[in-house]
Amino acid sequence: MKKKLLTHGKLYLYPAAVLFWLGVWAFLAWRIGQELLLPSPAQVWQSLCALAVTADFWQTLGLTLGRILAGCAIGMGLGVVLGFLTGVSRVLDIFLRPLVSVAQSTPVASLIILALIWLRKESVPVFAAALMTAPGLLHNARQGIAETPRELREMAQVFRVKPGRQLRLLYLPQVLPYVLSGCAGAIGFGWKAGVAAEVLSLPRQAVGTEIYHSKLYLDSPALFAWTAAVVLLSVLLEGAVKFALGRIRKGKEVRHD
């Protein structure tokens, strides 16, 4: 009963919080009174509606989404494979650590500029999203391997279990929860890095390119509208990933029972 009340409370609080901050935004925009510095929510909404009726808007969103999802998929795949390998090989772990540290501590803008020199501009957002998602997944997969009980590793050693079977029966079930928990966060990072890369690399038909042009032409409502579209898409994407992961987890539990 108590839990139900709390859940209901939360349900009412979320829209209330959104409305509160929209109110703060509207108040500040009214006080400043300059569309260039801070457009009001209504002006941004109008701009977003004007954009949303064009096919170009949806095409641009779709292409950005495709680039960033491709980057996230590459980064996640790479991270999980390297996490597995560094989890089972101490030598490889030591060798890769400096590279991972450099990737994690180098400002993403520097890496994007470097990528601009190395790659075609359409590939830069893919690269940036991959680079931001891989280290987190690598860390999670490695941790999952490290947490595999020693007793079970010894059992596999005694019974000379083939590597493929060890992977499927011993390590994958152990690593999967760690990887799943890292996925939603990784997509968030990849999304931000991907859009930032688009702003710097300006590929054809990209949200980042539109944000850059809005800034260039001092079109603040359009800048806010594209940003709002990015935020909405990011929230939807993260929600979809969480939902999918929840289904995977639930499916595993049901099969487990």
Binding site: E151, A156, V158, F159, R160, V161, R165, L169
Partner: peptide, 25 residues
């Protein structure tokens, strides 16, 4: 020589079936 071992603890894979556990090798 191949050594088979019944450990003091069962050491079964928690997410594997009885058949997968017994047939691990």
């Amino acid at each position: 020589k191949r050594v088979s071992y019944v450990f003091q603890e069962d050491r079964l894979l928690p997410r594997a079936t009885a058949l997968e556990n017994a047939g691990i090798a």
